[in-house]
């Protein structure tokens, strides 16, 4: 119980007792939000698993159209961005505003690199006529449900991509705040919770990669 007035700092909202309580609450709130994210993606994972169990051959055939090299590079890019995200918190904990900013920028750069590679993957497929749903015209896969695999592929990677883009916005906002000197070792809650979000985006990709690209 710290009721001493020194705990009452400018960033503590009026309904919290102290900074510690506010930090814990924000983090807990973020974890609960991540639960909703996991179940949100979960519906797609469920659809993936059920269709894979129904049509294992379809998955083997269709995944040949996905470029493992690009997928692997993107995995590396996201892992690296997760590292720099965590390092930006580490820098903030050491009151190092400059390094915090640099690490945030590198994270943003990685996120862009990820999206650029995704863009090349998508356009290559569009070129072949591999679209989601009805627009699917590719004839290279001899399976009546081929379009369903790619519908699931586009839904999963598309939703993930939207999360990456939202992440870019959030991390950019952190960068601006950091430039104004908002963060220090006593207060870096926004970096912490955006970081949690960003790591979850990474984790989802960690599963998407083997599920979509690494089917024999």
């Amino acid at each position: 119980m710290s009721h001493n007035s020194s705990a009452v700092q400018s960033h503590v909202a009026h309904h919290f007792v102290d900074s510690e309580q506010q930090f814990d609450a924000a983090k807990f709130g973020m974890w609960i939000f991540l639960v909703t994210e996991i179940l949100f993606f979960g519906g797609l994972f469920a659809a993936y698993i059920i269709y894979r169990a129904w049509y294992p051959d379809l998955y083997t055939m269709a995944s040949t159209q996905l470029d493992t090299t690009m997928g692997a590079i993107n995995t590396g890019v996201l892992i690296f961005s997760s590292l720099t995200m965590a390092l930006s918190i580490w820098a903030a904990q050491h009151n190092d505003k400059k390094k915090t900013g640099i690490f945030l920028l590198v994270t943003i750069a990685c996120a862009f690199a990820f999206m650029v590679i995704k863009y090349f993957e998508y356009t290559h497929k569009f070129h072949l006529g591999i679209f989601p749903g009805e627009a699917y015209t590719f004839t290279g896969i001899d399976h009546p449900k081929a379009h369903i695999f790619f519908s699931i592929y586009y839904m999963m990677t598309g939703l993930h991509g939207i999360h990456v883009i939202i992440g870019i916005g959030l991390i950019f906002w952190l960068w601006m705040k950091n430039n104004k000197g908002s963060f220090n070792s006593a207060y870096y809650t926004p970096i912490e919770i955006v970081g949690l979000y960003w790591h979850l985006v990474d984790i989802i990709w960690i599963f998407l990669f083997p599920l979509l690209y690494l089917i024999d």
Partner: peptide, 16 residues
Amino acid sequence: ITLMLLVMERTLKIGI
């Protein structure tokens, strides 16, 4: 996500 897929089903005809 289910309703999202339903919307996609109607707009893109994803076939799930």
